[in-house]
Amino acid sequence: MKHSRVPGRVLQGFIAVFLYAPILVLIVFSFNATKSRVKFEGFTLDWYAKLFEDRQVLSALYLTLVLAVLSALAATVIGTVSAIGLHNMKRRPRKALLALNNIPVVNPDIITGVSLMLVFLLCVSFLRSLGLRAGLGFTTLLLAHVTFNIPYVILSVMPKLRQLSRNTYEAALDLGANPFQAYRRVILPEIMPGVVSGAIIAFTMSIDDFLISYFTTGTSVQTLPMVIYAMTRKRISPEINALSTLMFLTVLVLLIVINILQSRDQKEKERRFRAVS
């Protein structure tokens, strides 16, 4: 069948411009000598220097990373253990729990945010009535992040468990392993790819989240997206452009590295496969 590829190419080109023009604009204006967001008036690296002197940005970056690591770690442990538990359950309770699991995934973030805020505020006022010091802050942020991360870990571990042969676990037991050893030495290595990708998804979700953090933190604890939000409201500093450029480059480098590692892994597997057969 013959048909012209030209309209398709035009569409692709149009979308590429649409998707990347704003990002290009962000990057170009991070080097602008003046504060103007619309006129380029000379090259400078000042905004990058300013960014690295900005204590608010640096401490927010630190907080965001700590929060992402801790919440991804907690969610990965809880999520993996629960996925194994869910896998071993009877069909009906499993379906009920998995339906529960979907709530944070399909709910709009803003509703997850405000509903958690209500719970935390009630807890805070209860603790205060007992004479304890309490408030929204790092703890509530961490609880919120773990809560919205767990479902993603479960969703990425469950398929791996389903692929597992039922006999694997029993074979391990027959060979003299106790249940704990069987899980740690046999099941865990098998489902590891799902666990790792769950952890990565959780980590990126946590770093990227603005809405849920916005509602569940106090005034003193700010994550990087919250600082960015405050910056966009003031509409002034090209520092924000410098920050976006750096974040974009980080993501780009990470994706390229992951791609290279994956293709190398693939080649390694093929090589081994050929060696075996």
Binding site: I78, G79, V81, S82, I84, G85, L86, H87, N88, M89, K90, P93, L97, L100, N101, I103, P104, I111, T112, V114, S115, L116, L118, V119, L122, L143, A144, V146, T147, I150, I154, P179
Partner: peptide, 25 residues
């Protein structure tokens, strides 16, 4: 089928931080 207990902490967590918040709304 015994390993189902492993999901118990998760069920508690989800009830505390997903079901209770929704009910509060």
């Amino acid at each position: 089928r015994r390993g189902g207990l492993l999901a118990f902490p998760y069920a508690v967590w989800m009830i505390l931080f997903t079901v209770v918040p929704m009910l509060l709304v």
